[in-house]
Design a protein around this nucleic acid. Structure first.
Length: 273
DNA sequence: ACCCAGGAAATTC
DNA sequence: GAATTTCATGGG
């Protein structure tokens, strides 16, 4: 346990909120309250000590990567302040979900996990993703698996995917893996592409519609202007924001979306009329 | 048994 | 082209 990275004075950050707000599916809470996760074939345990973020099992040489992953360079207090001015309910949601940060997940992982997310619930998504990694990801340590590569998945049949029990989504996963591994779609290029164009590019994959494409762009490519609208968000925008245009949230609409999503999901009674 | 879940494709109107 | 149905699976 001598390999560790410590980030000092980390504000506006809660591991519980960030890992449990539906943006990621592989971080697991441990008995001691820390979280265990795998990112880019690196397995680590993270916890907070006051305002220090501690990443156990990480090499100092990867400090920049982890800083990036947790989006520590963006001033979320500043973002929250400007978003809160836009709408009173936004202020309420941002205050409630104030510890959420948008992770920079791996694009391919975001693509596959959000394909799995369609017409599904978060608990079961996590189970399917876990089985996907155990069955087809490289074992990087004892009983610890990396997220499978596009190349590995592209060689599978629907039948071979059956142990993950994702049902009708198996063919979607295979189409995504094949288009990525063949280079037919280059996820990295989506970082700089005009938003609508990047969204359309992703929708060429079977099982990827506008909402899943929005999620991939937000969680995998850090396009913070993205505003995925699932059933919760549609309800929330209608009931709590009088159907206002999400574009009003501007360049950080994706962060607003995550605050609202978490706030809504934790207050389901708001929608029971 | 019925309904829903971070939707999208297929079908029908 | 817009509205509805279907698609696996599991939990409430």
């Amino acid at each position: 346990m001598d390999r560790k990275i410590i980030f000092e004075d980390v504000r506006d950050f809660s591991l519980d909120m960030t890992f449990d707000c539906g943006q990621c599916f592989r971080w697991k809470k441990q008995e001691d309250g820390s979280y265990f996760g795998v990112v880019r074939r690196m397995a680590v345990k993270v916890h907070m000590e006051d305002n220090r973020l501690v990443i156990d099992g990480a090499d100092e040489s990867n400090r920049r990567m982890w800083e990036d992953y947790f989006d520590l360079l963006l001033d979320y207090a500043d973002v929250k302040k400007s978003l809160s001015d836009i709408h009173p309910t936004m202020k309420e949601a941002a205050s409630y979900a104030s510890g959420i940060r948008i992770l920079r997940q791996e694009p391919f992982e975001a693509l596959i996990t959000f394909i799995i997310s369609q017409n599904n619930n978060i608990k079961r998504i996590a189970g399917i993703v876990e089985r996907l990694c155990e069955n087809f990801g490289e074992e990087i340590a004892e009983r610890v698996y990396a997220f499978p590569t596009a190349e590995r998945l592209s060689g599978l049949s629907e039948e071979e995917l059956s142990p993950i029990r994702a049902g009708f989504r198996h063919k979607y996963i295979l189409d995504a893996a094949r288009k990525i591994s063949a280079g037919e779609i280059d996820l990295e290029s989506l970082r700089v592409m005009p938003y609508e164009e990047a969204n359309r590019e992703l929708m060429r994959i079977k099982g990827v519609g506008e909402k899943v494409a929005d999620c991939v762009l937000l969680y995998g490519l850090h396009r913070l202007e993205s505003f995925p609208k699932d059933v919760w968000m549609k309800r929330a925008m209608k009931e709590l924001f009088d159907d206002m245009d999400p574009a009003a949230f501007g360049e950080y609409a994706g962060i607003a979306q995550q605050y609202i999503f978490h706030y809504s999901r934790m207050h389901p009674k708001l929608f029971k009329l």
